[in-house]
Design a protein around this nucleic acid. Structure first.
Length: 112
DNA sequence: CCAATGACTAATC
DNA sequence: CGATTAGCCATTG
């Protein structure tokens, strides 16, 4: 997790979200709702989405591995096309706008 | 402070 | 399957 001018950017909430994303292994995925639950704010799933969209460290902090709960790819700051390319390059099967969940879903572990 | 705004979700039609 | 709707919440102007 890099910094800018020696200071970690973002609000406390955003940093928590980005920190969770940083732990998603290559080739695996999670959902906005899972992240929300993992940080103890299960109903803030929408706010999580907006926070993910402001991730300033993409793609190093792999926010492209965060997809919708229904399996659709979702959006991406640099274009959905790019998001799919990145996922496929990591071995994630993407059929149209939908990812193949089986054996791929990475559920963020709740923090202590 | 308040209203608007999203990389969302589940339900419903 | 797609479209619509209501609910949700941190952030922004």
């Amino acid at each position: 997790m890099t910094m800018k001018r020696g200071v970690m950017q973002g609000t406390a909430f955003q940093k928590e979200v980005w920190r969770m994303i940083a732990d998603i292994p290559r080739g695996r995925i999670t959902t906005y709702a899972s992240i929300a639950a993992a940080i103890g704010r299960p109903r803030a799933l929408r706010a999580v989405g907006t926070a993910v969209g402001k991730n300033p460290y993409a793609p190093r902090v792999p926010c492209h591995r965060v997809v919708r709960a229904d399996g659709s790819v979702g959006s991406y700051a640099y274009g959905v096309k790019r998001k799919k390319e990145l996922l496929r390059s990591e071995g994630v099967l993407v059929d149209g706008d939908t990812v193949q969940f089986f054996n791929l879903l990475f559920l963020s572990a709740p923090r202590a």
